[in-house]
Design a protein around this nucleic acid. Structure first.
Lengths: 210, 210
DNA sequence: AAAAAAATCAGTATAAATACGGATGCCGTT
DNA sequence: AACGGCATCCGTATTTATACTGATTTTTTT
């Protein structure tokens, strides 16, 4: 059986080397390179075309983890990224998941969990620990501030705007004047501090209003 | 210790009753009502103010599970919804998570898993089985079709539109004529099959282009 | 080398959105 | 009874966006 080839990307040398030593214990895993940022990572990836995955830190100089995830995704790379981060905020986790991370581990994870994750990911499956998934889902369903920001009518109008209806069409559908809808729209834009409808829709989706 | 009070909402009577019988075995769980749709659910919730959670089916007549989730969220209800569905599509799972579901179970889940989930949720924690979380994350990170749909320039322009910049502002920033940006915008809208910018931004965020 | 796609620019006309300024009646809270 | 938030409506003017029909050049793909 050929070992799982991987690269460790982290700007902290001690952590990088420690992880490397730690993984030597496992015969089915082979670390082919240790790199300190995203740029060097992609250089190494060109040399080693058979790398299966990357253990990826988020906070790195030059080219950070998020950029690496994005680049891998855009290049349609077969390399599977496992994020190893010290941040356990839903924000970070959701972004990584969205950008193609196969797993998200905290730096205080024990090695059993790490090797388990590596093996699962090597089978092409994504694996997020229930506690990590919980944090992400909590973040996704957050609506705290936005909860009572908009009135019910405003929420309704916002939904129709996002559907691509024009002011006139919305007015017709809600049996009110176009003026009313225009005012609603203006108020919604003001409340979400957007410049125009485009930004409004973006902000609204960000805080789960749509 | 007071038992965990819950309501079962499912339009299939057999399933409803079966679940009820099944839960009788557990002393710490008490089913206070069986309902066939969302409307009846809310009637029952008014009668029983001490209900801790709802086992909720998605596909129901009159008022379906998604609407129930939304309504609970909008009312800031303390009732914790656990979705029990037969659909294991990431689409469904992500929507439920986003709308405040505390868990998502498949109808073929074994009872060990069910009672475990009920107890976890009763402690106020959300719990998504790794396999369910995996499906959701796969969906979230999906970009297959959209991957090469837009050119790089178009992606760039789209990003600036979403930021709230007008055509003129974008043109200035990219050192091209307003005409160019107008064309780009029109092409992007066409490619994403949107009616206008508002819907464009919504669709673009849905498929992770922004 | 030929074909396809991407990026650039244009005219003309209409439709829609935004920015100002107002206004009224309703409803719930203080 | 007074107040603020909400939903409703209006005028005027300007700015933006959209629809339609084009075009050229460069780059990429076949």
């Amino acid at each position: 059986m050929t070992p799982i080839k991987l690269i460790i990307a982290d700007d902290h040398e001690l952590f990088r080397n420690g992880l490397n030593e730690l993984l030597k214990k496992y015969d089915d895993v082979q670390v082919v390179a240790l790199v300190e940022d995203g740029n060097v990572l992609f250089q190494e990836l060109e040399k080693h075309t058979d790398v299966a995955m990357v253990l990826l830190d988020i906070t790195m100089p030059n080219m950070d983890g998020f950029e690496v995830l994005n680049t891998l995704k855009n290049r349609n790379s077969q390399v599977k990224p496992i994020v190893i981060s010290m941040h356990d905020e839903g924000n970070y986790i959701a972004s990584c998941a969205k950008n193609g991370a196969y797993s998200y581990l905290l730096k205080n994870t024990d090695q059993e969990e790490l090797i388990k994750t590596i093996r699962i990911v090597n089978d092409g499956k994504k694996y997020f620990h229930p506690q990590i998934a919980e944090k992400m889902i909590n973040y996704m369903s957050e609506q705290s501030v936005s909860e009572n920001l908009l009135s019910n009518k405003e929420k309704e109008v916002l939904g129709l705007i996002a559907k691509g209806l024009t002011t006139k069409e919305i007015a017709k559908q809600l049996f009110v004047s176009s003026r009313t809808i225009e005012t609603h729209r203006a108020n919604i834009i003001k409340k979400l501090e957007a410049k125009n409808t485009a930004e409004l829709i973006k902000k609204a989706t960000e805080i789960n209003l749509i």
